[in-house]
């Protein structure tokens, strides 16, 4: 969510690629004030914690959104999005340099006591450098990774498939990249890493855990099958039972 409602990008906003999805949503959302007023009361009744993903064009916008959501009942944690590839200004601009990423993290840290997750981009030269800087600036956890920038072209119509030249690639196609980055980051920082990127089945989730992830996120796979997260949880449970794993900590980061 953002400080004011965002309209998002021009259509088309989604395109399927081989084993993946390119999207250019552009963070359309109803804005933090309406979300707090109309959605948070409902979240407060849910049995699961709700984490809000926040973004902005400027550091001040991030600070203001974080300040507003901090006291709200029904919001369990903040995930700072410094990795959205679909904006001209903001978000990823902060996530491509260790200096700006650290500065933004410290600024948000000063206005909230909620658990603070920072979501990193794979579209960088050295994700470990950024991860270390963010971890040293007060983040409680990292989410690795957001989408990879990509393009698709319609050769018949000679135009881009999306409303803009580029979008963010997600889904099974990016899993090896995500896994590699989680592995590197998890071994470099001492805060928890949430693994994300192409997870579809329980085996994928366990790969991320063995690479060092404490938790995982599932995005695109829920489009393919809305029950995929349930199947992943069931699959992990069956695995730990079968392999006599008492605690996921036993296999976390073993590689």
């Amino acid at each position: 969510m953002t400080l004011v409602p965002w309209e998002g990008n021009e259509q088309p906003r989604i395109w399927e690629t081989d084993a993946g999805v390119l999207n250019s949503i552009g963070l359309e959302n109803i804005g933090v004030a309406v979300a707090i007023r109309e959605k948070a009361p409902l979240w407060a009744t849910w049995k699961v914690p709700v984490i809000v993903n926040i973004a902005g064009h400027t550091v001040d916008e991030y600070i203001e959104v974080a300040r507003m959501v901090d006291p709200v009942e029904g919001i369990a944690a903040i995930e700072v999005n410094i990795s959205c590839p679909n904006l001209e200004r903001g978000s990823l601009e902060f996530g491509t340099s260790a200096v700006t990423a650290a500065r933004l993290t410290s600024a948000v840290r000063t206005v909230t006591t909620l658990p603070l997750i920072v979501k990193l981009s794979p579209n960088v030269t050295d994700i470990v450098e950024i991860a270390t800087a963010v971890a040293a600036s007060g983040a409680d956890a990292l989410c690795v990774i957001n989408t990879l920038r990509g393009t698709a072209i319609d050769v018949e119509r000679r135009r881009f498939r999306l409303g803009r030249p580029a979008g963010g690639l997600s889904g099974p196609a990016i899993k090896p990249v995500a896994l590699h980055m989680v592995h590197r980051v998890a071994h470099a920082v001492d805060i928890p890493v949430i693994g994300c990127g192409g997870i579809c089945r329980w085996r994928d989730a366990l790969e991320f855990i063995m690479a060092g992830a404490t938790a995982v996120q599932v995005g695109t796979a829920t489009f393919t099958d809305p029950d995929s997260m349930i199947s992943i949880i069931d699959g992990i449970e069956a695995y730990v039972r079968q392999c006599d794993v008492a605690d996921l900590g036993e296999i976390r980061g073993i590689l």
Partner: peptide, 22 residues
């Protein structure tokens, strides 16, 4: 008809402008 992602209102892939807003 517009391109859809989730089909259930979660992803904003299918959002269009109307006189009442998006």
């Amino acid at each position: 008809e517009v391109r859809m992602g989730c089909g259930v209102g979660a992803c904003y892939a299918c959002s269009i402008p109307t006189v009442q807003g998006r």
